[in-house]
Amino acid sequence: MAHHESPSTPHHGLMAEFDSAQALLDAAHKVAGAGYTRTDAYSPIPIHGLAEALGMKERKVAPFVLMGGIVGMCTGYGLQYWTSVFSYPMNIGGRPFHSWVSFIPVTFELTILFAAFSAGISMIVLNGLPLPYHPVFNAKRFSLASQESFFLAIEATDPKFDAHATATFLASLHPREVVSVDH
C-alpha cells in the first residue's frame, strides 16, 4: 500500500513480532477492534482472513482480469476480421472472407493472453511493486518475515497512534517483542 507519510513523521511506526500465524491473525483482529486503521501484517505464508481482518476491502484484481479478457477477445477477433475482410482478403478454397468459426482459436488464445497478463500486472502494480525501499526492512529481524516469523505494524500516521499508548497496547497482545521502526 502506498501510504503517504508527512515529512515530519519521526518514524514509520511500531512493529510487533509473533511466533505463529494464529497469533498474528488474533492480534490483527484485536488491533482492528481497537480502532487502528493504518496497519499492516507481514507473514511468510498467505494467511486466510488476515487482510480482511485489517480492513482490506479492495477487490480490483478480478475486474482488471475481466477487462483484460474482453480487450484481448476484441483484439483477437478484430485483428482477424479486419485483416481477412478488409486489409488483405484472400479466397481460400471459396470460404467466406468472414470465416468466424476459423477465427475462434486465435480469439480464445488472445483472450487468455490478455487476461493472464492483466492478472499478473495488476497484482504487481496494485501491490506497489517493484519497490526498492520500504521502511519495514529497517527492523532488525524483519528479514524473517519471508522465512519463519510474523509481524504486525501500526504506522505512525494512524490517527489513533500514540508512541507510548500504542506500544503498551501491542505489548498486551503477547508478542515476542515490539520494536520501533525508523523511517
Binding site: M1, A28, D40, A41, Y42, S43, P44, P46, I47, L50, A51, E52, L54, M56, E58, R59, K60, V61, A62, V65, I112, A115, A116, A119, G120, S122, M123, I124, L126, N127, L129, P130, L131, P132, Y133, H134, V136, F137, F142, A145, S146
Partner: peptide, 24 residues
C-alpha cells in the same frame, strides 16, 4: 521486486494466482 509479505499483498497475490490457474 521488494516483496515483503504484506497481508494485502498476499491477498491480491492469491487472487491473481488462482485466476492465473483458472486461465491456464
Amino acid at each position: 521486486m521488494g516483496w515483503r509479505g504484506s497481508a494485502r499483498h498476499w491477498h491480491r497475490y492469491e487472487t491473481a494466482y488462482l485466476i492465473l490457474a483458472g486461465l491456464s
